[in-house]
Design a protein around this nucleic acid. Structure first.
Length: 419
DNA sequence: TCTGGGGTCCTAGGACCC
DNA sequence: TCTGGGGTCCTAGGACCC
């Protein structure tokens, strides 16, 4: 059996941990630059605020219903996530951390356990130790565990946020209930296609002939059919190195000058280099893009990107920044109002794969320099040492008007208790 | 006025090789 | 009329996930 555990309304729940007076109140969490609504508490969902909606379109609803608004605080959410995952791995070391708020457990070692009791223990401990409510779905395959989790979430009174599919009847009941568009791996396009041939429920989907699924939904569609039918097609996945590393942002305002963009690209490239070093990898090529506001109707639109091959694999901030700026120079055009830019590293391989070429001039001193830089920034804060061409705000140069404290990661943000 | 950011995998088709 | 048989690599585009 597999368990899928996910945190309920994760970002909203994180904001509540140190603000218990917000329990039962509507909460929304915003994307970077306070642009879109990317997380909602149940109370906010009940007000009809959709996922991904631009904030400005719902300002009236928010004001009239006293919805609490938060800027995204990924420093907080990342730390809370680590705490949750650490508890889950205590219960079951066979774990796949699937996203910031979700994990699969392989429960094959728990054959003789009462899974309901097990799930209740997990739920209780995460709530008590971290303060975040979770839902648990348990079933014979990963995609069925997703279905079980969906049911646990949808019927909290009946399931107490735990649902186990452990019989043929429960499986069929679940699949006949679940709309096909809610199946894990069936997105909007496949859902539309399936609806057109009158497939409405997950159960209808697994009745389709193999050839039809293979033809229209490729090999993964077919694997999904079998996995959903109860034949295990997916196992826990072990974490692998990222194949691409990106840092891209929209800006708080418009930039027109080359130097302003240069500062941003320098910061994004530095962040990419840092991420590469974090996973002990380096890259052999990168791309840079700049873009004007894609929603604006009056101003001139421009989008350009460029892909550069590096002379050698590197994760040195100095190197990555240097080539990113070379790229920027080639695509930058005067006279546009830029709203977004980014740096993406490709051909990412482990550092140990490094193979020097005969004529290259990679500066090996950078290795030690970067190590020292990372160490200092880790100890004294992210932006303590940076390139002179970056400004002091770093990646946080964006609109964050409703930011909560980093309660668990910054000593100056720790809560004080009045006696 | 205002609109996020980060990933993965698969396939068809074109270009090339012998 | 009729036109081999076997490969590889790369890329764009389309699908999906959180």
């Amino acid at each position: 059996m597999f368990a899928l555990i996910d945190c309920n309304n994760f970002y909203a729940s994180c904001e509540r941990i140190f603000r218990p007076e917000l329990n039962g109140k509507p909460i929304v969490v915003l994307s970077n630059n306070d642009g879109c609504i990317i997380a909602r508490s149940n109370e906010a969902k009940a007000l009809g605020i959709p996922m991904g909606a631009p904030l400005f379109q719902y300002e009236n609803v928010i004001r009239e219903n006293n919805v609490y608004v938060f800027s995204a605080n990924f420093e907080l959410y990342g730390d809370i996530s680590n705490r949750v995952m650490s508890i889950l791995s205590d219960f079951c070391p066979e774990i796949e951390i699937y996203s910031i708020d979700e994990a699969f457990l392989d429960l094959s070692q728990y054959k003789n356990f009462n899974l309901r009791n097990f799930a209740e223990e997990v739920k209780k401990r995460v709530l008590k130790w971290v303060g975040v409510p979770i839902g648990i779905g348990i079933a014979p395959t990963k995609s069925l565990a997703k279905v079980a989790n969906h049911i646990a979430k949808k019927f909290p009174e009946y399931t107490k946020n735990i649902h186990i599919i452990d019989s043929e009847e429960k499986k069929l009941k679940a699949l006949k209930w679940l709309p096909v568009e809610d199946v894990w791996g069936i997105g909007p396009n496949y859902a539309e296609l399936l609806n057109r041939v009158n497939v409405r429920k997950a159960y209808d989907f697994i009745q389709l002939p193999d050839q039809w699924i293979k033809k229209h939904m490729k090999i993964n569609g077919l694997l999904l059919k079998y996995d959903l039918s109860g034949i295990k097609m997916m196992s826990l996945e072990t974490p692998t190195m990222r194949k691409n590393i990106a840092t891209t942002r929209s800006f708080e305002t418009y930039y027109e000058k080359f130097d302003d963009l240069k500062e941003r690209i320098t910061t994004f490239a530095s962040q990419c280099a840092f991420k590469l070093r974090q996973q002990k990898s380096h890259c052999k090529s990168l791309s840079v893009f700049v873009a004007t506001n894609r929603f604006s109707t009056n101003s001139d639109k421009y989008f350009a990107s460029i892909h550069l091959q590096l002379p050698y694999s590197t994760n040195s901030t100095i190197d990555i920044v240097k080539y990113a700026i070379i790229g920027l120079k080639k695509i930058f055009k005067e006279g546009y109002q830029y709203k977004k830019a980014g740096v993406i590293c490709h051909e990412v391989y482990p550092e140990s794969f490094y193979q020097p070429t005969f004529f290259e001039n990679r500066n090996e001193k950078h290795l030690l320099l970067m190590k020292t830089l990372d160490k200092i920034n880790h100890t004294y804060g992210n932006n303590t040492i940076r390139l002179a061409s970056q400004d002091e705000k770093g990646l946080n140069k964006m609109k964050r008007n409703f930011l909560s404290p980093c309660y668990t990661t910054r000593i100056e943000d720790i809560i004080t208790i009045k006696v």
